[in-house]
């Protein structure tokens, strides 16, 4: 049974960009968690998660954002979310993520937002 998921990481100046594609559920969320953990371990605490190609997220994926945000902010960084399609954005909003996380339209805006800070 296909469970399409892809994850790419890249660096744009001092911002780490993690691009999620497909479905983040309890099966695939550990890969997302590893990607953020690696960035944080390497001291890359300005993180943009690009969700333009993300079709679906469950609480397992939302929990990954939650588990890192406090540590990242305490160290002077942040996790910003960009490119959410309406269906996925709705899932974030049900739990009130818009009050905790900055959600930007696209990756250039999210990266610029870091550089302006």
């Amino acid at each position: 049974m296909p469970n399409p998921f892809a994850l790419n990481t890249s660096q744009q100046d001092d911002v780490s960009v993690i691009t999620l594609e497909g479905f983040v559920d309890a099966h695939t969320a550990p890969q997302f968690e590893n990607a953020i953990q690696q960035a944080v371990d390497a001291g890359r605490i300005r993180i943009v998660v690009n969700c333009e190609k993300l079709n679906y997220i469950s609480s397992a994926g939302l929990g990954v954002f939650m588990s890192f945000i406090e540590e990242v902010r305490e160290r002077g960084g942040d996790i910003k979310i960009c490119g959410l399609v309406p269906k996925v954005k709705h899932t974030f909003e049900i739990l009130g993520f818009q009050d905790i996380f900055e959600m930007l339209d696209d990756q250039p805006t999210a990266v610029r937002n870091f550089q302006a800070a």
Binding site: S58, S59, L62, G63, M66, S67, I69, E70, T91, I94, L95, G96, F97, D99, I100
Partner: peptide, 23 residues
């Protein structure tokens, strides 16, 4: 618990149930 409380306690338990009840 509220989302900030869950974040502070490094707990994500109950998120799924909260979603189910909302949906």
């Amino acid at each position: 618990e509220t989302l900030p409380q869950l974040i502070h306690e490094h707990a994500s338990g109950g998120l799924g149930l909260r979603l189910i009840k909302s949906l």
